[in-house]
């Protein structure tokens, strides 16, 4: 029988314990929720550009520098969420739960590398007016 009394005097002070896997989980959650918000913005921007008529090009708005920074943040969120998702998919297959820390470091490193590629492409475009490839 489960105790009916509520939990009181929990030792919460020590409960600040956070393993590396927990940071991965928190980042996964936060980036996931941010991406859900972005998803709805994304759909409504698509609707505005397709239904708003071809003449007024709303994409010009997104060329301001603040949007470049926000886009890079978004890319970081997408890439981290995707790669950490891959890590979770590996866990689902029974691979790598003992090596979850190394996998997390790997995910962070890979995110940094992919983000660097995107940042390079976008700054190259900003300075040269065309893509590097």
């Amino acid at each position: 029988m489960i105790a009916e009394k509520t939990r009181r005097h929990e030792n919460v002070g020590a409960g600040n314990w956070k393993g590396w896997g927990m940071w991965a989980w928190i980042l996964h959650r936060v980036s996931g929720l941010a991406l859900v918000l972005y998803l709805f913005m994304h759909i409504s921007v698509i609707a505005a550009s397709s239904r708003g008529g071809a003449d007024e090009n709303i994409f010009e708005t997104f060329e301001q520098s603040i949007f470049v920074v926000l886009d890079l943040l978004l890319t970081a969120a997408v890439v981290f969420h995707g790669l950490n998702g891959l890590r979770i998919l590996l866990f689902d297959l029974g691979i790598g739960t003992y090596r979850h820390k190394s996998l997390f470091y790997g995910v962070m490193a890979a995110t940094a590398v992919v983000l660097a590629v995107f940042a390079y492409a976008s700054f190259y475009y900003i300075s040269n007016g065309e893509g590097p490839w």
């Binding site: 314990w17 956070k18 393993g19 590396w20 896997g21 927990m22 991965a24 989980w25 979770i88 866990f91 689902d92 297959l93 029974g94 739960t97 003992y98 979850h100 820390k101």
Partner: peptide, 21 residues
């Protein structure tokens, strides 16, 4: 949610996450 705190915490170095998966 495969947070893997249990894998880090276990004093016997067992793997509840893998078992749950």
């Amino acid at each position: 949610h495969t947070i893997t705190n249990c894998v880090e915490a276990c004093p016997k170095e067992l793997n509840p996450t893998e078992a749950i998966q």
